[in-house]
Design a protein around this nucleic acid. Structure first.
Length: 453
RNA sequence: GUGGGAGUAGCUCAGUUGGUUAGAGCACCUGGUUGUGGCCCAGGAGGCCGUGGGUUCAAAUCCCAUCUUCCACCCCA
């Protein structure tokens, strides 16, 4: 071994992560659950490049998102960037292959995205993270929005979220309602909507007085603020009948809110018919969300017990986005399911069991004389669909057992000189120390038996 | 981008008013046990005390700078 004059410090860029097997295995399980839900709701897979032309990716939501895009150095004169989300690439794809994608197009997409903001681990916020998107393009019916919300509720329930500390709520609102409210308050939605959204959205954090102070700081006229704050008189958010009451109350405020309220009423009715339980969603009229390309219903899911994590999923209707790339505009709605947020939340709620290996059986090695018998056993177990690994060198049995123990491998199979001579296999279950000797031809059955017990 | 903490072994940390050779737990390796893991015992390896400068007879400890990192805000998944 030659001496290295200069060692390179092993490290990774802030906000990026390595997933070692113990964490990667539960992560894979979560992804599998999400993928299963996407399939069950009839979404088709899509993948797009990690980097694209910068001009495709920028300009979606004003300057805010653009600042967070990782630009790549000039390559042959082309300006490129890592994609910031999966929604813009979808809009491009829909515009680029109109003849190959029958509408309505339901697509899901699971890929990393990159954002140049400040990472915060505890909040599940990273510079590289994976988004699981489900979107429906080509339908402007609220039925599509309802499907997205039902899917979200289904995924979170499948992952084990539901009651007590694990309770989740999907907050639902509509940008058209916010716009109508802004107009009703005497402000011009064209110029003031973003500001109104920003202030209202803080309600859950700073309360009614905080929002009022925020409006004051933004120099919104007192008369307008008075009208806007009436939203909070409607009481705490809730789904089902409570949401319907809230719609009715808003309807009494002003007739110009009616169209938006009718849309929401249709959405809520669809949620009920799709079997989304009332306690899983909540009509939250002050929900605004940051991105300003939303044009209709908006939604995000949160864990009341873990407010610092922010939203686990978020989405809404964006009817103007495809039009950036195509002559013909297409309505679209969808959500992002943030697996990294979800993983962080599940970790903090004790829902993750680390697993360093998926192996079910370790076949020990006793040296050259019995090695082929051991390898034949491993091959047979594998043919039977049992995840099996062989120890790859002759070593003390203690060391081999310790290896199995460290990796949480439940069973060790032993074929030493005695077993080889007798044509048997010894199987030991580490959890309870039970060890049995079986004829070689019965080993698969006995392995299954021991793993089941 | 704005504000506040923290940097000592692979990880979590201790280290007294500056004072001999910088420690513990966990993890790792070896042995106790050449056919049996966890528990126990013995031993071993592993440190430019983040980096650079300053004060001092003497700095992990005091001062300055710098880098890194964590937390909160903004925004978001």
């Amino acid at each position: 071994m030659s001496q290295t004059p200069q060692r390179i410090t092993p490290r990774i860029f802030k906000g990026t992560r390595d997933f070692l097997p113990a964490a990667m295995i539960p992560r894979e399980d979560i992804l599998e659950t999400i993928r299963g839900a996407f399939h069950r709701y009839g979404f088709a897979p899509l993948q797009t490049p990690a980097f694209e032309y910068l001009e495709i990716l920028t300009g979606k939501s004003g300057g805010e998102a653009d600042k967070l895009i990782y630009n790549l150095a000039y390559k042959g004169g082309d300006e490129l960037a890592l994609h910031y989300d999966l929604t813009v690439p979808l809009a491009r794809v829909v515009a680029q292959y109109p003849d190959q994608l029958p509408l309505p197009f339901r697509r899901y997409q699971i890929q990393p995205v990159w954002r140049a903001d400040r990472p915060q681990l505890r909040q599940g916020r990273f510079r590289e993270f994976v988004q699981c998107d489900a979107d429906i393009v080509g339908v402007d019916s609220t039925l599509a929005d309802a499907e997205i919300i039902a899917l979200t509720a289904g995924v979170l329930a499948d992952l084990g979220f539901g009651s007590d500390q694990r309770r989740f709520v999907i907050l639902v609102n509509d940008r058209r309602l916010l716009s109508a409210l802004t107009a009703w308050a005497g402000l011009d939605p064209q110029t003031e909507l973003a500001k109104v959204c920003r202030c209202l959205d803080k309600y859950d954090k700073v309360g009614r007085d905080g929002v009022e102070a925020e409006f004051d700081r933004e120099r919104v006229p007192a008369e307008a603020v008075h009208r806007l704050l009436r939203l909070f008189d409607l009481g705490e958010a809730a789904g089902g009948a409570a949401a319907a009451e809230k719609l009715a109350a808003l309807g009494r405020y002003a007739a110009e809110l009616r169209p938006a309220l009718d849309e929401l009423a249709a959405l809520f009715a669809a949620l009920e018919a799709l079997g989304v339980p009332d306690e899983r969603w909540s009509f939250t009229p002050w929900l605004a969300r940051g991105l300003d390309y939303y044009t209709g219903p908006i939604f995000e899911s949160v864990l009341p017990a873990k407010p610092h994590i922010g939203s686990l999923t978020g989405g809404g209707r964006y009817d103007g986005l495809v039009g950036r790339f195509a002559k013909r505009d297409l309505p679209a709605t969808g959500t992002t399911i943030g697996i990294d947020r979800i993983f962080a939340a599940m970790e903090q709620l004790g829902m993750i069991t680390e697993r360093p290996s998926r192996t079910r059986v370790l076949v020990a090695d006793f040296g050259p004389e019995t090695r082929s018998a051991s390898l034949r056993l491993a091959a047979e177990l594998r043919r039977a669909g049992i995840d099996t690994e062989v120890y790859l060198e002759e070593a003390k049995l203690g060391k081999q057992f310790k290896y199995a123990d460290r990796l949480n491998i439940p069973l060790v199979a032993l074929i030493g000189p005695e077993e080889a001579a007798a044509g048997t296999v010894d199987l030991k279950r580490l959890a309870d120390g039970r060890q049995v000797s079986v004829a070689a031809e019965d080993s698969v059955d006995e392995v299954r038996n021991l793993l089941a017990g």
